[in-house]
């Protein structure tokens, strides 16, 4: 990753880390839907320098689904008719909590 000593990370990708240490590399633009991650990547925070966002509350299977959603949104954001993404039933409560935390519960605008 292109990290300068005290400069912000300018890489096209950022890394999301789950509570059990799994890392997910996501397009930076795709995470723009989440105001929480956008906030984390702003300058005064360490995440902005390293490009690594750690989520001690989110487990790997959930974060994987969230990552999938980021790309799903990124790919479909300009389309009008979009097929729904599949959410496994056993994960949906945890995904709800994660979506609430990451601010993925608001209409875009």
């Amino acid at each position: 990753m292109a990290v300068n000593d005290d400069d912000v990370c300018t890489s096209k990708y950022i890394t999301l880390v789950s509570n059990d240490g799994f890392e997910f590399v996501v397009l930076r633009e795709a995470t723009a839907i989440s105001p929480t991650i956008k906030g984390m990547l702003r300058n005064p925070f360490s995440e902005a320098r390293t490009g690594r966002c750690e989520f001690p509350e989110i487990s790997a299977p959930v974060l994987e689904k969230v990552t999938e959603y980021f790309h799903y949104w990124y790919k479909n954001q300009d389309k009008a008719v979009v097929p729904d993404m599949d959410i496994p039933v056993e994960l949906c409560l945890e995904i709800l909590v994660a979506a609430d935390f990451l601010g993925l519960d608001k209409q875009q605008g």
């Binding site: 969230v66 959603y69 799903y72 949104w73 479909n76 954001q77 300009d78 389309k79 009008a80 008719v81 979009v82 729904d84 993404m85 959410i87 496994p88 039933v89 994960l91 949906c92 409560l93 995904i95 709800l96 994660a98 979506a99 609430d100 990451l102 993925l104 519960d105 608001k106 209409q107 875009q108």
Partner: peptide, 28 residues
């Protein structure tokens, strides 16, 4: 753009929809 300009749903909505369709939802 008429008759449908919805775009992707939010993750919250997607998860909620899956949850509400589950047969055990009332107990949950």
């Amino acid at each position: 753009q008429q008759h449908g300009a919805a775009g992707p749903r939010t993750l919250f909505e997607l998860a909620m929809n899956t949850l509400a369709r589950h047969p055990d939802t009332e107990r949950t």
